[in-house]
Design a protein around this nucleic acid. Structure first.
Lengths: 355, 355
DNA sequence: TTTAAACTTGTGTGCGTACACATTTTTTAA
DNA sequence: TTAAAAAATGTGTACGCACACAAGTTTAAA
């Protein structure tokens, strides 16, 4: 194996007839360097194709970068929010020797107060960067304003608030995800099968993203004229509690026995599929996210499609972006949409293994 | 930002009342250490939760790891094999400061001789690890035998040869990919639409994987009794040259005008979809891989589904695995199936951006 | 011409680990 | 009991870079 010697600062110094300190000054343009030497050094760097060794740099720097994440809590170990959290933690672990230190905070989706409280704790911590799932819009904006005052960069994941000064948004293109759901559901229905859209939202204020998804879904049917022979209704349920959901569904199904396809706009599709199984209904179901209950339903055939927005990947990307921003001063793309994975019974296992 | 001091070898040394050299001996079990001290040191490591700093270790080690890859050539910049190559190169670039050096070799799919020749060059290079797409089975086995004699680990990607001593196989589960194709194609066909399977293989010997895919495809229809009202024929074409393919297709379509769905078992689905467009046929098409021509056809609607086996990811994983093997002595899982991404017009862009 | 100020450049140490070599301690054989 | 051999342990330097500080050089004011 032939040794390929990488060029170091010393090589550059020798080539340019200066000491390593002067090279350092040029690289970080710190301190004064005479124009003649500066030019020569720059030429030397280019000529020798010098790239600072990231390991040595990080080691010498000895700096730590604290990242705080603020996501909804995952009481049950396997709910949706455990997934981006896993991605964040895996990625932070990978970069720990590079000085990345992660502190993960959680808020309750039922309690704006908890968000505000945790946000304040983060602000007091004075981190180097923040990863935020901004599901409470108003409170999130207050939070990010405070961060901006302290010059702390922040990244939104999973949900976006437009026109903020976030470093980046990493997450799904919501409208499109609805459109894809429409296309997929349509492909396994007959022309005149009725469709039900189920939205589960706690409060009206912080649920705008649900309407965007529904919009996309309906757009598929409208733009392809698949609406003539069928009804497409939507049902909004203000809870995710199983018994209450069941009650609402029962009410609806009795009045609308023609429903053959159901689209659930959040990760709770399994509630509908379990309802179907319990009542021996054969409706097709499509929903979001690879959480445990959904996976089980997908495998037993009571859910037909899941769309996954790569939550583990989202979390990992966010950490990676902040790392690149800290170390390389690389400003990330403002919006990074994640792939919308189409999951069926036959390929679900491959996704579980690789995340 | 509170500084979180990581425990170092010196901390462990102090705690266990020995010098750092002895710690080193325990960690790498090199040299002799008295049982008493050894026990104490191990306790200290656990107690202080010591993890060697990867950066410092790599820097001090100063070792280089040469990885040679051997894949089919990509004459056109955008054919399929450029994708795993990109993954390999990106990943190698990422790890270059860790001593990873990549040399990429290519062979012609039309020429076993070129494979043998390149393989010999790699053997003479005496690399630390090899990434191989073993499309020529016989020649690949000779190659890997030579590698084994020199104790060089190797990884198969994209295609597998069973019962070899490869460190790992990273690639698709072929039979399943055919099954998924069947399911998807069926979802957009009517019960009595005829189906055509197109295999393009150069020689009989090295094309067994194509039959596995076809098997999986047919299994979907057999196991679901979707075969009664339709014909499912397969057409084998011994070239990928466009004019010849067109001629074969023309011959077939004239004799079999009922074809409404086409499954292409390699990355050349665009040849069929272009044929359809040219002759104003409205058959549905499903194929493999996000290469440029397929993407174009998908977007203009002449291909309906593509299944992507994440070639960029495959390449990246292979490098990552070898790195982990070199540095952490981590033996990878023997088989790592990659996700089979289902790509439609509406989500293709998200996949292009993130790979 | 002298001298301080301003500017420019060089030197040395530390980051955490690996490893060769030096030193100390223990064991063994005479 | 002692010397030599063997075993156990300690020390110092290198890896490539950043940064504080020292040293050297030029400029400007007196």
């Amino acid at each position: 194996m032939s040794k390929i010697k990488k060029t170091t600062i010393q090589d550059v110094a020798k080539y340019a007839n200066v000491s390593s300190g002067t090279i350092d000054r040029v690289i970080h343009n710190r301190g004064k360097v005479s124009p003649a030497k500066k030019k020569k050094i720059e030429e030397a760097i280019k000529h020798l194709n010098f790239n600072p060794n990231l390991l040595a740099r990080t080691l010498a720097l000895g700096k730590q970068f604290m990242i705080c994440s603020l996501l909804p809590e995952s009481v049950i170990s396997q709910n949706y929010w455990s997934l981006p959290r896993r991605g964040i933690m895996q990625s932070a672990e990978k970069y720990k020797d590079f000085g990345i230190v992660l502190e993960a905070y959680e808020y309750s989706l039922f309690d704006e107060e908890s968000f505000v409280k945790q946000a304040q704790i983060i602000i007091d911590k004075n981190p180097d960067g923040v990863i935020l799932a901004p599901l409470f819009e108003k409170e999130s904006i207050s939070f990010t304003q405070a961060l901006e005052e302290k010059n702390i960069p922040y990244i939104f994941i999973d949900a976006n608030i437009p026109d903020q000064n976030n470093l980046s948004y990493i997450g799904p293109e919501l409208k499109n995800s609805g459109y894809i759901a429409g296309k997929l559901l349509n492909s396994i229905l007959n022309m005149n099968d009725d469709i039900l859209i189920v939205n589960m939202v706690k409060g009206i204020e912080n649920s705008s993203h649900v309407w965007v998804i529904e919009d996309g879904f309906r757009e598929f049917f409208d733009s392809n004229n698949y609406t003539n022979d069928r009804k497409i209704n939507s049902l909004t349920i203000h809870t995710t509690d199983e018994t209450e959901v069941t009650r609402e569904l029962t009410k609806y199904y009795i009045k609308n026995p023609g429903v053959k396809g159901v689209f659930v706009t959040n990760s709770k599709a399994h509630l509908i599929s379990e309802f179907h199984r319990a009542h021996e209904l054969d409706g097709k179901v499509i929903g979001f996210d690879l959480i445990e209950e959904n996976i089980a339903s997908l495998k037993n055939g009571s859910i037909d499609f899941l769309i996954s927005q790569n939550p583990v990947f989202q979390g990992g990307q966010a950490v990676q972006m902040l790392f690149d921003y800290f170390v390389y001063k690389k400003t990330p793309t403002e919006i990074q949409y994640v792939p919308l994975d189409i999951i069926i019974k036959e390929n679900v296992d491959f996704y579980l293994n690789s995340q």
